[in-house]
């Protein structure tokens, strides 16, 4: 087994953990962290699986750099919304269901 493949395996596990976290965790900050774990997992798979013969491939590396910036943007927006939500309601968890 090559190191690239080990990275890809770790990425798959991280992704699944992240998804489970986003679905199960109610605390919004921790949910954002779970989303980031999920994204990192996908990035690891992207780079690791492409390099499973252990030769570096610049194309997925560049894609991951793009993906990281997108993830930073999404995280920032999420934090902005959570902060506003906290400011308005004083809570860190979304209500169970909306009325109507």
């Amino acid at each position: 087994m090559t190191s690239g493949l080990i990275f890809a395996f770790a990425g798959a596990a991280l992704f699944a953990m992240g998804v489970a976290g986003v679905l199960l965790i109610d605390h919004l900050l921790r949910r954002i962290l779970a989303f980031n774990l999920m994204g990192s997992g996908a990035f690891l798979v992207l780079v690791g699986l492409a390099q499973r013969s252990d030769a570096a491939d610049p194309v997925p590396q560049a894609m991951v750099l793009t993906g990281i910036v997108v993830a930073v943007a999404a995280t920032a927006l999420a934090l902005g919304l959570v902060r506003r939500f906290h400011g308005l309601t004083g809570k860190m968890e979304l209500p169970v269901a909306d009325d109507d």
């Binding site: 890809a8 998804v19 986003v22 989303f35 798979v45 992207l46 699986l49 499973r52 999404a74």
Partner: peptide, 17 residues
């Protein structure tokens, strides 16, 4: 929407692989 695009991204990663 982030969960959706995350799943899509992993799909893309596997296709590239």
């Amino acid at each position: 929407t982030l969960l959706g695009s995350g799943a899509y991204l992993l799909g893309v990663a596997l296709i590239y692989g």
